[in-house]
Design a protein around this nucleic acid. Sequence first.
RNA 1: GGAGAGGUGCCGGAGUGGUCGAACGGGCUCGCCUGGAAAGCGAGUGUGUCGUGAAAACGGCACCGAGGGUUCGAAUCCCUCCCUCUCCGCCA
Length: 422
Amino acid sequence: MLDINFIRENRELVKQGMVNKGEKDSAAVDLVLAKDEEWRKTVTELDLARAESNKKAKMIGQLMGQGKKEEAQKLIRETGDSKDKIKQLEESLSVLQNERDELLYQIPNVPDASVPVGRSNEDNVVYSTWGEPVSEEWRLPHWDIAAEKKWIDFDRGSKVTGAGFPFYVGPMARLQRALINFFLNEAVEYGYTEIQAPYFVNEDSARGTGQIPDKEDMMYTVPRDGFFAIPTAEVPVTNFHRDEILSMDDLPIYYTAYTPCWRREAGSYGKEVRGLNRLHQFDKVELVKFVHPDSSDQELETLREYAESLLQKLNLPYRTLLMCTGDMGFTQTKKYDLEVWSPGQQRWLEVSSCSNFGSFQARRMQLRFRNEKGKTEMVHTLNGSGLALPRVVASILETYQTGAGDVVIPDVLRPYMGVDRI
RNA sequence: GGAGAGGUGCCGGAGUGGUCGAACGGGCUCGCCUGGAAAGCGAGUGUGUCGUGAAAACGGCACCGAGGGUUCGAAUCCCUCCCUCUCCGCCA
């Protein structure tokens, strides 16, 4: 969430950002400020009432100590009114606070000035492209290759769990493992600290990174225990430092984590979900950064460059999109998507999303650091995929297939696969 | 899952209804001392929020695992939940 003081001082900027992000209207901004005004008034009133009641209680204590029971009794009798008043004020304050926070949660992060204004994915800017997308007629989509070789078993996945939960068999299981190891090793070599995270999180964590209340429906739940299956490692890893005050020397902190990810993906259909294009369970290596506010812009660029370097090493053509305001999401200030070329489908597939959240997540999480002046300040958080597996697998199968039906293993994966073709 | 013991500041550890934001010790910071250091001595050392202020700062309120409750008054009493430790059970 945004800082209410920031909203107060930048009312128009926040409103404009909201409109640019495609919200129906920006009324929440005015409403939240009005509500906050009321809230602060009530806080002052309540604090005054409490101060008075504290004073009386202290006095009673003193009188009791001195054995002046009668005088104490007299004072006690006087406290009834202020007690009621305090109770009333507390109740209205808690109502006001809830209303204010609910509004505050509806206000998205303000897009960075460098983000193109636009409505939908059609307004995203192609930031760069790498490699030559191949497009020969004979190339099969990955689901045909996988079916032919019995590498991916969607039907048995449906039987055992449901649609979107495939089995990977033989060389394909090995390829998954190879990619995970490759991605983790690269990240660690770059300077990320490898971390193994829980696959379920509690409600506070889901709120901390913004899945709640915005994107609750995307997650699988474990109601009996109040857990959420993680939709991305971003959730547990970013919450790792929730409610902490870091030292400035700690920053920047880089983490990488491999986890499965679970997403309900309600409402998906057709070619969008064919094969490995969109699954309910998939594997991903995630990158998370905690940085000083002054450097988050630069950190986003190096994050993107790092993610791009993985596709370059795999020798997979890709393009990088700078997402426009309307397509970038609620919590981000700026976001790049990396899309790998799928020659069997003749389309681009998103394999990484690199985002800067500014202090938006940190504020929800109360994640701070002690700055140059010794004061606490919100850190900036960023994350990106490095990378998500299924579409990379799809692109590898389609890009590296030979006319003879085999698939050549990319050079960098051979040490992990033990063979040079499958 | 069952039985028991606990959760207090950066750490250890007091505090079982009143003047406790919290003794004492350690750590850390600053100062004195020193050629320099150690030891010693002195001072300081939480977070959030509201208000005043340009700021430094000052004042109020809240916070002793979380949330409720009792009371004029709660770290201290009661209830619920979470977590940690010990033993038993179960288990990869």
